[in-house]
Nucleic acid binder design. Sequence first.
DNA 1: TCTGGGGTCCTAGGACCC
DNA 2: TCTGGGGTCCTAGGACCC
Length: 417
Amino acid sequence: MIEVDPGPTILHADLDAFYASVEQLLHPELRGKPIAVGGGVVLACSYEAKRYGVSSGMSGNKAKQLCPNLQFVGGHFKEYQRLGDEVMAVLHDFTPMVQRISIDEAFIDVTGSVHLFGPPEVIGARIRERVRTDIGLPISVGAARTKHLAKIASQVAKPDGLVVVQPHLETEFLHPLPVGLMWGIGPVTQAKLAERGVHTIGQLAEVSPEVLHSLLGKALGGKVGALANNDDRRKVRPNGRAGSVGAQSAFGRRDPEPEFVRQVLGHLADRVAGRLRAKLRAGRTVTVRIRFAGMKAITRSHTGRLPVNSTLTLTEIAERLVWGALSQPSEERVQISLLAISVSNLVDQASLQLELPLEPDNPESAGDVAAARFAIDHSVDEVRRRFGRSAVGYASVTLSEHTSVPEEFRELAEHEL
DNA sequence: TCTGGGGTCCTAGGACCC
DNA sequence: TCTGGGGTCCTAGGACCC
């Protein structure tokens, strides 16, 4: 008998209602109850709460309307990070081919591990067992020949389940499912497809490449068409480094007063530049984003010759970009609701470099200013290394009144630089 | 209840070079 | 002189992911 090469075996592991499950693990009295992590906004909720229609991203008031018994709990963000890392360590016990997608989700390629640990259903079951008994959390696992199928399988497996898609049953599995389950199809694309009467992945597979192209554009149309026809060649890529670093802050609606804008940008630049310096990186392109009261948003960017990672230089560039945009006649006197700074075109910077101020008052002293900035950044970084982030930084009194999520929550979402 | 924060990728137009 | 085509980089906006 000839053995047919079944192709790669990919697993997608996804912790169930992660933050809420951690709270129920740490506080047994919360088990079996509808709970939500967060306050103003639901960051995560338990399956007991989901049954009432509560979902993450929803405002706290709305959630309480849907589920009067809903109990809000504060987030133990340090624990989320620790437990998420522990789960990833379990995955690494089966293969180094782990691609972490977020704090609670990862693809793993076990093609080379099946001879050690057994077929995918055995590996999936062992992962679930270990995460359940060693760590105490529910996790769903999907297994299939491709990333696309594995990811969808884990969604279908939820909550707390395992779904293995056998190679000869892929189309039967895939085609009846709604297009919204597919990677890359969000609300906008889903609406476009619905207008054409396309609701299931099987229906999507019937649409000609030309029509998809005209409807969704070249890249998305091609990608989505291929995935619907079960042509997915993406490999599991062990995590690389981020291509950009950013930070944003939403603050309700405010008049763009110079002092306020300066404070917010200073705070954001401090976060971004601090992270860059910590990883000995710097970036040539600075992008700011301004969201207005009506949710319309614009971006402005600047690409310089030299990479930047000094807090003050970044603040200056961001301020210039923001005022350049806000001084346009159409944007004058409009209230703003969010500011963001992002740095891209990143390069390694083996040693910290001096950055000259943009427009030195006195060109001859520019070097002194640069040296002073370097010294300030360096000492702030040093204090933080020893005493933690909050030990020193921008006076963010004004800011903290408006930030609705704690600093630790921001850190959870940071990608490896 | 008008929507948190960190990212990626794509599109389209323009500048510039060969 | 006019004309074309291709590649790369930058900017701005938008959809999408978790």
